[in-house]
Amino acid sequence: MTAASPPTAASAPAPAGRTGTLGLALRQFDYWLTVYRRTWKGSAVSSFVMPLLYLTAMGVGLGGFIDDPDAIERLGGLTYLEYIAPGLLAATVMQNAVFESTYPVMSGIKWNKVFVAMLNTPVVVPALLLANFGYIAFRMTTIAGVFIVVTAVFGLVPSVWAGLLGLLVAVLIGLAHATPVVALSGRLENDAGFAIVFRLGVMPMFLFSGAFFPVSQLPAVFEWLAYVTPLWHGVELTRMLTTGTLEAGMAAVHTGYLLLWLMTGWWLAIKTFSRRLVQ
């Protein structure tokens, strides 16, 4: 070809210079920054204030009413406030992570189609998902961070390490719920399914996965159902950290179970997104 021929491969990257998934995910940083800038204020009450109101009403109000030596013994030596603080943390993270995995994801696929537009660029499905989960992890860090700092002020976090590990576990809980729900959002044709997710998934899990009372209080069937939920494992793991009752074996089981949800969800999300967006 002569110099007169127009394009242009001159400055174009050769295929040899292929960017990896992580690199492609990082290119979406500015996009997610704009998303955070426009949503954090609107979600501040539900993310930061609501959990603390719950904590005050149930931990301080209800707790002060029911705490007696007998009750404390039945909660394994914990006041009700000490008991529900980690539970609320885990349940709040779950709730917010699921929300971030529903409507915003459907919007990217179907409404404003930002994800569709991204895939017209070098961005690939795993990189797109990685960036989205990175954003959700960041959101969970801020939500759990505020919660942990406030509860630490009230003496509910035994050490800095417990707080930092709690933050890490919160992110794990968030992602263990986010990946399968994102995968589901990649399949749904409209947002009607989300109502079912919240009514039959999030709400019952929030209430019955050991955040507010031991699941042994439930009828046997529901008790076992609670053990299957990733949230129960998240609640137990968080409680171990904040109450200083960490036990390696069970901690490994809880972590492993949450990771199992996370990885299965990740795998499914790649599948549903590829089928939906690259077809």
Partner: peptide, 21 residues
């Protein structure tokens, strides 16, 4: 080489797919 090709093409889709916000 989908990703490397897409790096060098411009796509104007049928629907605008702009971020309206």
């Amino acid at each position: 080489d989908g990703s490397a090709i897409r790096a060098r093409i411009g796509v104007c889709p049928q629907e605008d797919q702009l971020d309206v916000e």
